[in-house]
Amino acid sequence: MMDNRTFLIAGIIIALAVGGLAVFLASSNPDGLESTALMVQGQKTLTGDTPSDAEIQEPESAVSYNPPLPDYTLEGYGKSGDLLAMLVGTILAVLVAIGAVKLLMMVRKTDRQD
């Protein structure tokens, strides 16, 4: 039986390892939704390969949001930028999760004191 702290640290290390490997090994093929978009736009067939120049035509969007690290990359830094993006994302996921639970527990405590 692993204690809670060991579990947390081991879990984060595994997540970081998975994210790091993803930078080098993940498939660059479009995902299911993107692939469907390319198919209905006539750029690929249902079961065929995706041509390297295929690009999804997006309708004009009412909003355009510019994320700080678009597509999990830090522009101009190559693979090390991708690794940094995954590191930041994974750590942020941990912090957001812990923060959300702590916040809820704090709110619950104040509720009970009322």
Partner: peptide, 21 residues
């Protein structure tokens, strides 16, 4: 925390499933 981190990380790990996808 581990579920959030693990799911975040593994969602970046796209595996080929054939059909250009």
């Amino acid at each position: 925390a581990v579920l959030a981190a693990g799911i975040f990380a593994i969602q970046a790990f796209n595996l080929p499933v054939g059909m250009g996808t």
